[in-house]
Simulated scan of single mutants.
Amino acid sequence: MTRWVITLEYGAGEGHGFSPLTRFESSRDEARATLYRYACEHRHRPGLRQRGREVFREHDDAYYVRVTGAMSTHDVRYRLAELVWSTDDGQDPGPPRPPSQLRRDVWAPPQGDTAAEPSDATPDYWRPPDE
Rank of each mutant, 00 (worst) to 15 (best):
R43H: 11
S100D: 15
V67G: 08
R103H: 10
V106N: 04
V84S: 06
Y78G: 09
A33I: 00
Q50I: 15
P46W: 00
V84R: 05
Y64A: 10
L83A: 07
T7M: 08
V67H: 00
P128E: 03
F18A: 11
R66Q: 07
W85C: 07
R49Q: 14
R23P: 03
A31H: 03
V55C: 08
Q50M: 14
G11P: 08
E30S: 15
A115S: 14
Y38L: 13
Y125S: 10
R79K: 09
P93E: 02
V65L: 06
D92P: 06
R103Y: 04
P129I: 04
R45L: 12
E117M: 15
L48Q: 05
V5P: 06
L8R: 05
Y125V: 08
V65E: 00
R3N: 10
G112E: 03
G94A: 11
A31N: 06
A70E: 07
R79M: 09
W126D: 13
P118R: 14
S26I: 01
E131Y: 09
H59V: 06
T122N: 05
W126N: 13
D89E: 09
L102F: 04
L8H: 11
H44W: 04
E25Y: 06
P20Q: 11
E14P: 11
A81I: 03
W107A: 14
R45S: 14
D88E: 11
S72W: 00
L48R: 02
S27N: 05
D124T: 12
T87W: 01
D120G: 12
P128F: 01
V84M: 02
Y78L: 07
R127L: 11
D130Y: 10
P20N: 10
W126M: 15
Y10N: 15
R43Y: 02
G69P: 02
A81N: 03
W4F: 10
A108M: 12
T122M: 11
V55Q: 01
S26W: 00
A116W: 03
A116K: 12
